[in-house]
Write a protein that binds this DNA or RNA. Sequence first.
DNA 1: ACGGGTGAGACA
DNA 2: TTGTCTCAC
Length: 696
Amino acid sequence: MPVAKPVSSDGRVIAHIDMDCFYVQVEQRKHPELRGLPTAVVQYNSWKGGALIAVGYEARALGIKRSMRGEEAKAVCPQIHLVQVPVARGKADLNSYREAGSEVVSILARMGRCERASIDEVYLDLTDAAETMLSETPPESLEIIDDEALKSHILGLKHEDGSDMKENVKGWLRRSDADHREKLLACGVLIVADLRMQVLQETQFTCSAGISHNKMLSKLASAMNKPAQQTVVPCSSVQGLLESLPIKKMKQLGGKLGSSLQSDLEVNFVGDLLQFSEQKLQECYGINTGTWLWNIARGISGEEVEGRLLTKSHGSGKTFPGPRALKTLHSVQHWLNQLCEELSERLQTDLDQNRRIAHTLTLHARAYMSSDSDSHKKFPSKSCPLRYGTTKMQEDAMNLFQAGLREYLGPFEVKMQGNKKNGWGITGLSVSAGKISDIPSGTSSIMRYFQGHDRLCSPSKLAKEKFELEAPCSFSENESNSTLDIIEHTKLPEEEATVNNESSDLESMEHKTSTNSLEVPFYSSMSSLKKADFSQETPLSFSGRESHLEPKLTDLQSKVSSKESTFEPGRPASEQQVKRNALRDKGTPSLLRFFRRVDPSCSIQSQVLAQSSDDTNIRSSLENNNSIHGDSLSEDVQRREMWQYNVDEIDPSVIDELPSEIQEEVRAWLRPQKRQANSARRSVGIADYFSRNKKL
DNA sequence: ACGGGTGAGACA
DNA sequence: TTGTCTCAC
């Protein structure tokens, strides 16, 4: 539910950019032969041809809908091209779409504060850019306006028969009798048109956009004219828009709240809310929601565009519907392993590319208990401190699951044992990593410094202490064994067969491969699994996104500087001509030159592409931080210790005793850092570590 | 219990 | 704070 916020008189220019049937576009770029053909993206081809998760516009025109199954789509339209979502580790792998989304974000973020709202949606605050344009080259002074901008839709602009629409739009954009805010919107229209063309040029993706004074109206507008079009909402047309807007179309009102408005207050259109006082709405729906409703009825939304280019969490999950429900601990373990593998990989990528680390691991599951009426009970989600490294994540996730299962089973735990039918099943599993924070810069060189000095310190002792403090969700051996025993012993062979028959190949294989580990206590079986995929903990090499984006940025720079020169009157004409010629094929003039001063905190460079030659150090220091034996004094072992100390406990005076060349860096490292409460509890204290070094 | 896999945010 | 719940694409 949205929270009402005080509203600044809205002179902002906010854009919402929405990629058109994004997954389809990504697949069509990958398979150019599909361009222009009716195409849909489908996942899990096994059951009724899989589910459609994105439908191209050519296919929509032929009656294909998102809710269809693959087979259904084929029946409706035999010539449809169905592309499958990539599969990795037995589950859908959305990474290629995430990466494509990042490409788009890196372009859109050039012009102002940018918020990545979803994998294919972005909000932009273009206020500053628009103000700058308005003061330097207001639209009314422009002799030529780009065609893309002229194709914009202006909500409420009446169109007389016979008149040229583009002339109409041009008139609106350049009209001098508009107030300041509307002129800003006109600038926004030009800027967004330009951005969309840049996106198309550099990614081959089309998008639609909405431009208005706040997020809510822009979001509405972007959906009005699709695909590959943009719509602006002038103040004057807000009331008319909301009057006839079905309440459920409003973001946040598509669910229960919207239904309750319809049934309880007989509000069917957003405008119907106008008849209720703010107080009345607050009485019905609470103080925050009430105020929010009162505001949106008037087209008011103070929500800020967050400057955030990266997600706040990563998750990996899978459902196991109906007959595919997981019925053994072992199959749960198998899938948790798969999910954690993917999650771990994505966390490593985030670390490599953005220098961020996640601090909590959360497990979600859905389960049913057929045996009893209590089947409505929900499987509790559980979380613990996140440890980097695939096998550790797998181990922790399994422990979280068992904790949840014990709670879920509760009093039935014993009863389950005697049941012939194992009365429970897992229909959904997911692991996610949250509480992501930036790694302070400069850290890795500090670690390098310590590599050369702390060899004298015993890492084995430190490491062992750390392990004991860190071990998440520590269960007594009794507890974990009894849970395991109950579950395993109640499993019947025939059920196993049932599961195998109806489950995927991957899952069947898993049942055949390792039955041994089921016979031994839980922790032992874990460690035997650990050995098998240890190789997967070796650092990943850079690939894909970086090599893909890096040259693009370079391209951009040259492009920008070229464009810049076109606008500089001081340059010799011949030089300008040369650059113009070089750009001729690229076409449209860019507005980039107005906006050299992009907020560095929003720059894609710092948030998406930030790289350093020290990344390898960081990566390896987070991994393997659990080799408790200390028999190898590798540099990794040394470095990894650094991450476990509680910055809060550092006596500032120790910094003075450090070599002068790293003092400043250490201070910078400590200063802005906010610590997680639970990591503070279990950390050793870097001061101890320092003093150890001093003594030796 | 096939609208999947993911994300964000509010609330207790 | 954790865990639950809602909402959205």
